[in-house]
């Protein structure tokens, strides 16, 4: 199969991944139903995970793996969960992306991987304090486009 990422991009990613501290686990969720970008998104993640051993990947299907989808709050496809990995344990930080991470959003995904790898949100004390005391779930959806 033809690669989606050329050698130049792969070497840029490799350089960026030098900043990684702890392992990151990516979960891909695809679907049997008409999912225009599922195949490309899956291939993209496979190519990213091949760059650095700190990045691992598992492949799921929204229908066949409904339990995993529920556990990680995935309800659309393609979906990517950017989770932390500690030994064999996958730790969900609630960070996910729905759609193909193309164009601008490719850089966002790479940055998300670095962020999760550092295990630090980078948020201010004020925001951390507020979030720590949340009594109800908070769901943020950031709508973006590839351009």
């Amino acid at each position: 199969m033809e690669k989606l990422l050329n050698e130049q991009v792969v070497s840029q990613i490799r350089k960026t991944f030098e900043q990684m501290k702890e392992p990151v686990h990516l979960l891909f969720f695809g679907s049997q139903d008409n999912c225009e970008y599922c195949a490309d998104t899956r291939q993209l993640l496979e190519e990213i995970a091949a760059v650095d051993e700190k990045v691992s990947l598992s492949i799921y299907n929204l229908q066949d793996n409904a339990d995993m989808a529920a556990r990680f709050n995935v309800d659309k496809t393609p979906a990517i969960v950017i989770a932390a990995k500690d030994g064999e344990q996958v730790i969900d930080f609630g960070i996910q992306y729905s759609g193909i991470p193309a164009g601008h959003e490719f850089g966002t995904l790479i940055n998300d991987i670095i962020l999760v790898s550092g295990r630090d949100s980078g948020l201010s004390e004020e925001v951390r304090e507020f979030l720590k005391n949340l009594e109800k779930p908070l769901y943020l959806q950031v709508f973006v486009t590839p351009t």
């Binding site: 225009e36 970008y37 709050n73 659309k76 609630g94 960070i95 996910q96 992306y97 729905s98 759609g99 193909i100 991470p101 959003e105 966002t108 979030l131 949340l134 779930p137 908070l138 769901y139 943020l140 959806q141 950031v142 709508f143 973006v144 486009t145 590839p146």
Partner: peptide
């Protein structure tokens, strides 16, 4: 407790319409 999701608006137009997404980024 906290879930943060990036949504590619052109791939999920019904959702973008539902929330009156006019420009990006919109949270």
């Amino acid at each position: 407790m906290i879930r943060a999701e990036g949504v590619e608006a052109t791939e999920f137009p019904e959702l973008a319409n539902q929330f009156n997404v006019r420009g990006v980024p919109q949270t």
